[in-house]
């Protein structure tokens, strides 16, 4: 029985979290407090249940349109958001541009205003530069979900990671979680440091000094440069993807040296506790930051992360677009509909 189901009321409906919990946009974990995060995670239980139905679709967002606006290729993230939208009966359109606005000669604002003109209710934005989703939110009436902005934040990734940890452990309180690898260039790491902390976990960043952000001393984390002494003491280990460009940038000498020092090899996997969890945001570099053995280990929850991603994104879209957040200001019918369809 899920946590949400336990809250089933006498007339058989579910009490869902305050739909206003997120505000108008989801731009980052920065600024979200513990109770907001917990509300989203709790609501996710209800949507995970929908995903397990024979026909995993509810009409909660029927008539709404979600645009994925991706300035950087990410098939997985886009598919996850589109799956979430379709399970809620929303329509989806997509804009994809690998090239920068600079090379197109069009400003970012132009692009946003054009996409807005299709009458979209939500924009899911992925961009290689930090802060772009924040700027987009200033230029559109649609709800904006940050699906990754440069090396800044990737809030739905952090939410799905927290949901996955919570699903296996009940709570993140007191957990000791190591985030290992290219923290410097990772939006996933930034969002997760904030989210894990807010939910009561202790975060250890493990990386060579060149792959840590300047000024990391001010972050609420423990910093370590060696992985081995930590292994036996971790509740979860979170491996970050390393890009080959880091070698030409002079940040590490070779992928091999990185893998030797920081990769989750079979030997290191054997040193993890029985109840430790192995996470990775995907796609993995097998044999680099994570070995095939570690990825296939029973303690690995990497595929759970993918499945939970859809449920978390359903919850986020519902919070941003459901509960009568229609442009017409027509509140009642939407709420009733959600009552009927989601809380049944």
């Amino acid at each position: 029985m899920s946590a949400a189901a336990e809250k089933e009321t006498s007339d058989g409906t579910l009490e869902v979290a305050d739909p206003g919990a997120l505000g108008r946009h989801l731009l980052g974990i920065d600024g979200m407090d513990r109770s907001t995060l917990e509300d989203v995670l709790e609501l996710t239980d209800a949507f995970a249940e929908i995903g397990r139905r024979p026909i995993p679709r509810v009409p909660a967002l029927r008539g709404r349109t979600l645009a994925t606006v991706f300035f950087e290729n990410s098939t997985r993230t886009r598919m996850s958001f589109e799956t979430a939208a379709r399970r809620l009966s929303a329509d989806t359109i997509s804009f994809a541009s690998g090239s920068s606005s600079l090379s197109k000669g069009e400003s970012l604002r132009d692009t946003v205003e054009v996409v807005s003109s299709y009458g979209v209710d939500a924009m899911v934005v992925r961009h290689p530069m930090a802060g772009t989703a924040h700027r987009v939110a200033e230029w559109t009436d649609a709800a904006v979900v940050n699906a990754g902005d440069g090396c800044h934040e990737h809030p739905t990734q952090a939410l799905l990671d927290c949901y996955t940890l919570r699903d296996h452990r009940g709570s993140l309180d007191g957990m000791r979680i190591a985030i290992v690898g290219d923290v410097r260039n990772s939006r996933v790491a930034r969002s997760n440091v904030l989210a894990f902390n807010a939910l009561g976990a202790e975060v250890v960043l493990v990386a060579p000094a060149t792959l840590l952000p300047p000024g990391v001393g001010g972050w609420p984390v423990v910093v370590a440069h060696e992985l081995d002494p930590l292994l036996a003491d971790l509740d979860a280990i979170y491996l970050l993807r390393i890009q080959r460009e880091r070698i030409t940038e002079g940040l590490i000498p070779s992928i091999r040296e990185f893998a030797t020092d920081f990769g989750l090899t079979a030997t290191r996997t054997a040193q993890l506790r029985e109840d430790a969890l192995i996470l990775h945001p995907g796609p993995t570099n097998p044999g680099v930051e994570i070995s095939g053995e570690a990825a296939a280990d029973p303690r690995s929850v990497i595929l759970d992360q993918v499945a939970n991603g859809v449920s978390v994104r359903m919850a986020v879209l519902f919070l941003l677009l459901g509960s009568g957040r229609s442009a017409s200001g027509d509140v009642g019918p939407v709420v009733d509909q959600v009552d009927r369809e989601v809380k049944r």
Partner: peptide, 15 residues
Amino acid sequence: HEGEWSSRLGIPGQP
């Protein structure tokens, strides 16, 4: 500027 703000904001900095 490279420093605490650039790290927090995720904007690559210059020292």
